[in-house]
Computed example of a mutant assay.
Amino acid sequence: MTSVTLTPVQGTDARLKDALAASDLPIEDLDYSDRSFFRATNDDGDIVGYSGIEVCGGDVLLRSVVVLPEHRGHELGAILVRETLASINGNSAIYLATTSAASFFEKLGFVTVDRTKVPADVLATQQLSSICPASATVMKLTRPPS
Rank of each mutant, 00 (worst) to 15 (best):
A102Y: 01
P145S: 03
V55M: 05
L108H: 08
D44V: 14
F110I: 02
L96V: 05
N91C: 10
I47Q: 09
E83P: 04
K107Y: 09
L141H: 10
K140P: 04
I88N: 13
A101H: 03
A78N: 15
S92P: 01
I53H: 02
S100Y: 04
S135V: 11
A93Y: 00
A136P: 15
G49R: 08
F104R: 00
V60T: 07
Y95L: 01
Y95F: 15
S130V: 13
G57A: 15
E106C: 07
D114H: 07
D114L: 04
P144Q: 02
H71V: 09
H71M: 09
P69R: 14
V65H: 04
L96T: 02
T142V: 12
L61D: 00
A134I: 14
L80P: 01
F110W: 03
S100Q: 06
C132P: 03
A120G: 08
E70W: 10
T125G: 11
V138D: 10
I94D: 06
G49K: 08
G109E: 00
G57Y: 08
A86L: 13
F105T: 04
S64L: 01
S64E: 06
R115D: 13
M139K: 09
L123D: 00
V111P: 02
L141D: 05
S146P: 15
V113T: 03
F105Y: 14
R82H: 10
R115C: 08
D121A: 05
A101G: 03
L62M: 09
L76W: 06
I131W: 04
S129K: 09
G77K: 01
M139D: 02
V67P: 05
E83F: 09
T84W: 07
V113N: 00
K140D: 03
P69F: 03
A86W: 08
M139Q: 06
K107P: 00
V122F: 00
